[in-house]
């Protein structure tokens, strides 16, 4: 029986993946997203744009690209990303960078002055950006042997966990989207640094 089920799953994987081609729906979706971006660009807040077709992530404000990071790897799982600006609910990392707490009198100039501050290098390189509408963006480092080993473990975990989560949301009639993006380590840190909770994100489809 077990073999039959595994065989069935293997056969199902051979079905063609529905693509998002050049049709009216894709232009309408792009139109909706551009209108969302136009409205974000009127405000003074930073926002993040993920261009899956161009394989880039941009940090923008008032329409200006402040920083751009190339994507080395893209994997999409589950429902398509909703065609609206999504707010960052939280950043989830194994080890979160922590702020130093200054006690009154601590900063009195002394001989043994040491810098204990929150800097870019303290930011994680592997983390998940939890956006509203159950969209999860996993950032993974794209270079190095340990990174590749870590990515393999993450993929294995996703392979086991994601179908169960997807099923759970599907029976409740809710959407679930997971996006895996590979970034260079310094870029991953810079994105974590600049993308704050509450900021909006727009994902343009592939």
């Amino acid at each position: 029986m077990l073999i039959k089920i595994l065989l069935l799953i293997s056969i199902l994987t051979l079905f063609p993946f529905p693509t998002f081609g050049e049709n009216r729906a894709s232009f309408a979706k792009e139109n909706g997203l551009l209108r969302e971006e136009w409205s974000l660009a009127q405000k003074s807040n930073l926002y993040v744009v993920v261009q899956l077709k161009e394989k880039i992530i941009q940090i923008k404000a008032k329409g200006i690209i402040l920083r751009e990071f190339p994507l080395h790897h893209i994997d999409l799982w589950g429902n398509n990303v909703p065609d609206k600006a999504l707010a960052l609910v939280k950043k989830s990392a194994l080890v979160k960078p922590s702020r130093k707490t200054v006690r009154p009198g601590d900063m009195k100039e002394s001989e043994d002055f040491t810098l204990d501050v929150l800097e870019l290098d303290d930011m994680p390189i592997r983390y998940t950006l939890v956006l509203d509408n159950r969209v999860f963006i996993s950032i993974r480092p794209s270079e190095g042997v340990t990174s590749k080993f870590g990515n393999t473990l993450s993929s294995l975990e996703d392979f086991l966990v994601r179908p169960a989560v997807t099923f759970w949301y599907a029976v409740r009639g809710k959407q679930y989207t997971a996006l895996d993006l590979g970034l260079e380590k310094q870029d991953a840190k810079a994105l974590y640094w600049s993308f704050s909770e509450g900021a909006k994100c727009i994902v343009y489809p592939q």
Partner: peptide, 12 residues
């Protein structure tokens, strides 16, 4: 359930 979730995830 896993198979159904896998199918939905791969082919939304």
């Amino acid at each position: 359930m896993w198979g159904a979730g896998f199918y939905i995830g791969m082919w939304p």
